[in-house]
Design a protein around this nucleic acid. Structure first.
Lengths: 181, 181
DNA sequence: CGGCCGCTGTACAGAATGCCCACCGGAGGA
DNA sequence: TCCTCCGGTGGGCATTCTGTACAGCGGCCG
């Protein structure tokens, strides 16, 4: 096995029950966890040893924390962050769909089959679903929308093109707040 | 520096100009790039050597491809994927905001200061901005919304709570399509 | 036709990883 | 009150990967 941290196997430092790391309530994260996540978020490829140095703790501690965070699901993984724009899809839009009763499952399957659909939520309010889509250009967006809404169960839709992205997806502020607790 | 792949430094295998890897147009990605991204997305912690084995190519090739992808911005990084729900924020909502003329900058700054605001786009259509927010509970969502919309420049807002997430954020289908080209 | 570029395969030194162990100190339970 | 459990510490070992370099080969473009 590579030196990379075991993807699935929170079994190192085996016996680590459910009690809390250092006084917090059972759920949520710890200040050290917060610093660790922040560190990894800012310099993702530094490795466990380097983390332990920067955080001024023992390597085993970092390893244990990481395992625990992954086991708890706080950290899902370390997948590459791909930029749709760099792939040739610089246009982002949000579409709100209204679905006819009972067609939910079919619509989902349909939407899941469209590569340009990056995300799909069911929502409260006027619409029933909200999809995040991307396209190669505004013109291409028309094609994508046609494909997205061109399905029987969808009775109405409205689209909003994303112009600017003043706050790109971020999670660190929330991590800090959760760590401060 | 750790064995981890250099975060910023597309300088290994130095002389690799601007011509295309293997016949594609100058932009976009290659089939091998696609397989590489997919592999890394599925098993993020496998390392370059393991990649080269799985992909049946030389290690240097993988290294070069990775450097190039990062240099081109296709891969932004390998930050940890943090799950807001696991942090204690299981409720997601999308709010559409209407801004009074000329208040854009102030509103952005205000929203950027709210940790529960994960993402902010300016959009076309009825609203002017769209924010993705999270909260600890439906009750807590009220608090967050109050904080979000409690600002002078915001004249109107409507919120949709995300109920289900049939298609979590994904990029692989798009990568495949871009790679197939 | 020559040159450039990318891929291959190999090699080497340095460094990090996975794993193990003994020890310590605080918190909770007996 | 004492004892046990658990997490953190610090050290060490064998393994394996990384960063880098080099020579050779084949295709594409000028």
């Amino acid at each position: 096995m590579p030196p990379a941290h075991s993807p699935i196997s929170p079994d190192s430092l085996e016996g680590q029950g459910s009690s809390t790391p250092s006084g917090g309530t059972n759920d949520a994260i710890d200040a050290l966890d917060g610093r660790l996540i922040r560190l990894l978020a800012e310099e993702p490829r530094i490795g466990v040893l380097e983390c332990s140095r920067r955080l001024q703790v023992a390597r085993g501690t970092v390893q244990a924390r990481l395992d625990r965070l992954q086991a708890k699901g706080v950290i899902g993984g370390f997948g590459p962050e791909v930029d749709p724009a760099a792939l040739g899809y610089p246009v982002t839009a949000f579409a709100t769909l209204e679905i006819s009763q009972g067609q939910g499952a079919d619509v989902r399957a349909h939407l899941a089959a469209v590569p340009e659909v990056l995300e799909l939520h069911t929502i409260t309010g006027r619409g029933d679903m909200m999809v995040r889509i991307v396209a190669r250009s505004n013109a291409d967006l028309q094609r994508v929308i046609d494909r997205v809404v061109g399905f029987d169960g969808i009775v109405r839709s409205s689209t909003a093109i994303a112009l600017e992205n003043p706050v790109p997806y971020r999670i660190l502020p929330l991590v800090d707040q959760a760590a401060a607790e």
